[in-house]
Design a protein around this nucleic acid. Sequence first.
DNA 1: TTGTACGCGTTATCAG
DNA 2: CTGATAACGCGTACAA
Lengths: 327, 327
Amino acid sequence: MVTIYDVAERAAVSPATVSRVLNGKSVKAELAARVLEAADTLAYVPNRTARTLRRRHSEVIALIIPDVENPLFTALARGVEDVAREAGYSLVLCNSDDDLAKEREYLDIAISGDMAGVIIVPAAGESNVDLLLAKGRAVVAVDRPVAHGNVDTVVFDNARAGHDATTVLWEAGYRRIACITGPNDVRPAVDRAMGWQAAMLGFDSTFPAVTYLRHGDFRTRGGQEMMLDLLQMDEPPDAVVAANNLIGVGAINAMAQAGTLPPTTGIAVVGGLPYALPFGHPIPVVHLPTRHIGMSAARILLDRLSGSQSPVSTVVLRGELTPPTPA
Amino acid sequence: MVTIYDVAERAAVSPATVSRVLNGKSVKAELAARVLEAADTLAYVPNRTARTLRRRHSEVIALIIPDVENPLFTALARGVEDVAREAGYSLVLCNSDDDLAKEREYLDIAISGDMAGVIIVPAAGESNVDLLLAKGRAVVAVDRPVAHGNVDTVVFDNARAGHDATTVLWEAGYRRIACITGPNDVRPAVDRAMGWQAAMLGFDSTFPAVTYLRHGDFRTRGGQEMMLDLLQMDEPPDAVVAANNLIGVGAINAMAQAGTLPPTTGIAVVGGLPYALPFGHPIPVVHLPTRHIGMSAARILLDRLSGSQSPVSTVVLRGELTPPTPA
DNA sequence: TTGTACGCGTTATCAG
DNA sequence: CTGATAACGCGTACAA
């Protein structure tokens, strides 16, 4: 391995000077040139591990998400990455599987690996980022707030999204509108359902909301199972609000299975349907600014990393009801 | 920060002993107990950076993929992750955007960050992993071979997949079957197209293959544009083989746009359509074992990491034609 | 401005 | 089986 000493020797300067050149401290032009040339010919690459040990922190930020296979989170990751790498940070993507134990593992890695900061979509339940905070590391929660956390947060306006999705169905003439959402220890799931409930009670104060609310997981399977369940009711709903993209896919598949596709049974989805194939009937979607939420979180984190002491903030991003699905 | 010295002091042993206990070397039971207790009450977490600097390598594996938003690669990532973490390694997911410069950056990070090994889907063009190999680091190529590389490789049987997709369309009665594939410096794109061409010429030796072959990017946009292009021909194809999932989605959307959906114009897709909504007409798919390819690559890497000197190998995994798309 | 020398936290070597 | 000590590669006081 070629070290800073090798470069120093070849350039006939001290290791300290090499270090200074590489870090943009003031060095006489001629020496700097010698150093750069030596570094170049030796193909010297600074050892990040040593640098990190010395500096006490690396230029890496961790992004912890519950599911790499959910397009919402990969889009979010893109947003984070674009902003982060622009600022010279690289990204470590960690998959918590919505599991607190795995999440803790990754948090430990972030700590013991001296990572600069962490952007986290907290796993279902009570995420604990106190150790990070205690070490003075920057933390930003995204998509979901962290339970007892005193951390910057970026979320969607989930209640509104649920409300909007419900409204569009109501206006299309549906009256018994159910809701399939995620686990009730996942905040966006709860909030979107609350938006739906508020909308329904607003339209019809006698609507038996609890009867038409289902909690599944935030995956296609959950959407499918819950939809089948709803369709088997004595008085099945005539439409459904799917609280996320994958639930939407699952629900529509269940509808196909039961032979009651839109517009027979209506559906509106919160969160864009990824890679949607053209579908017989247009499906209203409350499009969430997924990439944007990541960029926003990244900017806040970078701000903290550069020493900002502004008070802890929460940013709420609004979704947008898209005209019935285009190509 | 609580260090190994703090633990040693509290347990009244030497730092060396603490290290030994934590790394499972033989230590007298009583001392070990004291150490563990001390570490526990002090909430000691070993510093990975220092450990890595000393050991000259970390327990981290880098996975470099061209597109986090392509479900094929996220599924692959899952496969890698499952196997890796089982063996005590954590995964760093890196997004190259199919860009050689970004890829090189991540390769540099892998080197300078002392990562244990790299699993890479080489970017389009000529990836260069020589520096890694020169440093004796383990490297496994997956999905695509690395240009001049002498590295273990795991790929799909792409030619066969292309062939199978074509055959199923031919057997369904289509005769002028086009092919939309990826960039011609991406191996799987080329191989799948070759499979298609071989199949068509086998069925009809006068088939003007070049006329009906299109190269787009491996994304929905490419599929859509190329499909529209095909449909505008004087003698448009009556069916098309989409060489990957996203191209398939794009092509079908183009068909919808042009009002000639299956079965009017036929389509078969190589690679599973993610989150597919139920579609009027069943779409034949050559399902690729995406997760499996990742697991296989990870196992090979782990094998190398544990010192295996077996000759460089290439594993070819076969896809499977699924009966027209289920739920 | 430049060089010398030390320390970041850990593991490995070498005596005992 | 245990302890003292020397690295790992870098950045930075401190001295020149």
